[in-house]
């Protein structure tokens, strides 16, 4: 009898797939909705989206055992459309090429980029749908697991999508600050994005934890382990305070004091959001408790 079969590789995948698809959504939103000064963020988001999801998918493959040593077995993995993993394989194999094409189009990389530029709107629309599918399915993946009642809630994919958007925006902002130092001033424009998405994520997280307290005995056990049990220092410290509250306050100041915030604080807030997103995935996986059977 084993408690949890999944560990850090799956947690890293859940986080990177969320951050990558969130970065794609952030890039598309900037390219379509915001004016010219936001192009640096769109470029940065498109550049980071594909690689993040690819590294995450590699984590998934490393976690396989027979399917890793005998890679041809991976072709069997679309064999059962009642399994969320089969859907995940399909979604990822469509989203990853689209994300790479989008990066090529926005950054004019080789002739592929020039070709992709002609169809950039189509890539943006279809890509966004698959980005949302990627972020959401990682939540559904664990929400349908009978073995852990804490995860069995429709709020799980909503929480994962909210976390994906805020971590994706953070990843895109960090890369924008790296590739284009001048954007550090215009980055303040996106602080409002952080304020909005971190609030949404905090709200969904609150609903998820509070509703779990009354959902079932096992879910309540897991939820109380998070808010007052052995995992509570990590939950309050890493997820709530450092991952949500501190970056939220920093983003509010960044938005109010447009462009005057020190660079280290702007990027620091983004790094905290990423750390919070990873900690959230880890704590959700580690707090899962199987039903009491005897």
């Amino acid at each position: 009898m084993q408690q949890s079969a999944w560990g850090w590789l799956i947690i890293t995948y859940l986080f990177l797939a969320g951050a990558g698809s969130g970065a794609f959504i952030a890039a598309v939103a900037c390219d379509l909705l915001a004016p010219d000064w936001s192009k640096a963020l769109a470029r940065a988001g498109s550049l980071v989206a594909g690689p993040l999801v690819i590294i995450g998918t590699l984590c998934l493959v490393f976690d396989l055992e027979a399917g890793f040593w005998q890679p041809w077995r991976q072709f069997y993995m679309i064999g059962n459309l009642r399994s969320m993993i089969s859907w995940g394989v399909i979604i990822l194999s469509i989203f990853i090429p689209l994300a790479l094409l989008y990066a090529a189009a926005l950054n004019e990389i080789t002739f592929v980029g020039k070709l992709a530029q002609k169809y950039v709107t189509a890539i943006e629309i279809i890509g966004s749908l698959f980005a949302i599918a990627t972020a959401t399915y990682t939540g559904v993946l664990i929400a349908v697991v009978n073995g852990v009642p804490f995860w069995n809630t429709p709020l799980m994919p909503v929480l994962f999508l909210a976390s994906a958007i805020s971590t994706g925006l953070a990843a895109a902002m960090i890369v924008a600050a790296i590739i284009d130092v001048k954007t550090i001033k215009t980055l303040s424009n996106f602080a409002l994005g952080h304020v909005i998405f971190l609030s949404v994520e905090g709200l969904v997280l609150m609903l998820f934890v509070f509703m779990s307290l009354t959902r079932s005995t096992e879910a309540a056990l897991s939820a109380s382990g998070l808010i007052s049990g052995t995992l509570s220092p990590y939950f309050w410290g890493l997820v709530v305070i450092l991952g949500l509250v501190v970056p939220f306050i920093l983003s509010v100041f960044e938005f109010l004091e447009y462009g005057k915030m020190p660079k280290s604080l702007v990027v620091g807030a983004d790094l905290l959001v990423l750390m919070g997103g990873m900690s959230l995935r880890a704590l959700i996986i580690f707090s899962g408790t199987p039903p009491q059977i005897i």
Partner: peptide
């Protein structure tokens, strides 16, 4: 079997094991 361990998570009775030798 690819050894993804999804079934081990799904089993509410936790009655499955992973054979690391055969993966």
């Amino acid at each position: 079997c690819v050894g993804c361990k999804y079934c081990m998570e799904a089993c509410p009775y936790k009655m499955r094991i992973i054979d690391h030798r055969r993966g």
